[in-house]
């Protein structure tokens, strides 16, 4: 077996989701190779070479890869794919954007969002918003896979001594161009990597009221998330959304506030270690998955919770 992991990064640092993909790769093979493609991303290649289990880093530095456009990334990955049996990427929006193009170019299936490795050909992945788990076996020569970050521990960022090999750019396309980005600025931990997450739903009533959530998040060192309803209502930006088609989180503690608990939301957080639900409706489905439920008016409970946390 020979595994390539596609590194996700912002040209200066490695995204944590990459480390989970490395762990999944190490379940298939004793070592993995990592492809770091970007622009002025030498520090990322350096960091990738130190991950435990990484044998070789393929470092491709070219402005064409600065924003990981799928139209450019896929041909590069395909050009490097010779000899690899598995190509893995984190199931982030970048991985989901790029990898199906790689699979199509190689004329193989993609196995999306795996949560477990059974053997080199067989993987487990959630379907129907996680209401069923499918064990699937691939008959393709190359397995193109995206990895659910919360399902695999992060690989150790130290202890590795991989070689760094410079590789040249592949054919690039001028059919797509990066125009700009509007990234949410936050001092808080990243939603998918946080130990504690507190999310608000439609019950918050307004974006302004998310201040109540923020205050508790500050006390807990938590990341802030939201249900689809809260995002659709415009209370918070779309990157806050936790759920089937949003972000998947599995923190030690997940606090759902004013969230009824639609199956699509549960799909994004039900693997959390401890779930707390605060909702004034005792019949809300969220209570069926909560370890601790508090039936209360959130506008009273949140300030009180903030005051009682030290």
């Amino acid at each position: 077996m020979s595994v390539m992991v596609i590194a996700e990064h912002d040209n200066s640092s490695l995204k944590l989701a990459t480390l989970s993909a490395v762990t999944a790769g190490l379940r298939i093979s004793e070592t993995v190779d990592v492809l770091v493609a970007g622009s002025d991303c030498g520090s990322v290649a350096e960091a990738a070479s130190k991950i435990a289990g990484v044998k070789r880093v393929m470092h491709c530095d070219d402005p064409a890869y600065a924003h990981m456009l799928a139209e450019n990334m896929a041909p590069l990955i395909v050009s490097m794919s010779e000899g690899f049996t598995h190509i893995l990427a984190p199931a982030t929006t970048a991985g989901k954007n790029i990898m199906p193009r790689v699979a199509a170019d190689l004329d193989v299936a993609q196995i999306s969002d795996i949560v477990d490795v059974v053997d080199a050909d067989t993987f487990i992945r959630p379907i129907y918003a996680g209401n069923a788990m499918a064990t699937v076996k691939s008959g393709d020569a190359v397995k193109v896979i995206t990895v659910r970050g919360t399902a695999f521990d992060a690989a150790d960022q130290t202890g590795g001594s991989g070689s760094i090999e410079t590789v040249s750019a592949a054919e690039t396309a001028d059919s797509s161009a990066f125009i700009g980005q509007e990234l949410s600025k936050s001092e808080r931990p990243e939603l998918t990597a946080a130990k504690v997450v507190i999310s608000g739903g439609r019950g918050m009533g307004s974006g302004e009221n998310f201040k109540l959530i923020d205050a508790v998040a500050d006390k807990l060192g938590a990341a802030v998330g939201a249900s689809r309803a809260a995002v659709d209502a415009g209370y918070v930006p779309s990157d806050y959304q936790v759920g089937q088609t949003g972000k998947i989180v599995a923190p030690d503690l997940y606090v759902a506030v004013g969230i009824s608990g639609a199956i699509q939301h549960l799909a994004g957080m039900k693997d959390s270690k401890v779930i707390v639900a605060i909702n004034k409706d005792p019949e809300a489905p969220i209570f069926q998955v909560a370890d601790f439920g508090l039936v209360a008016d959130l506008f009273e409970a949140l300030p009180e919770l903030e005051a009682k946390l030290t």
Partner: peptide
């Protein structure tokens, strides 16, 4: 088809926990 579904199973079930009285008890 390139993928064969070997099996489909139920995900691990989460049991409902307890309802607490108030914020103090929750903390």
């Amino acid at each position: 088809p390139r993928l064969t579904v070997v099996s489909v199973s139920e995900p691990p079930k989460r049991e409902a926990g307890i309802v607490v009285e108030d914020v103090s008890q929750l903390v």
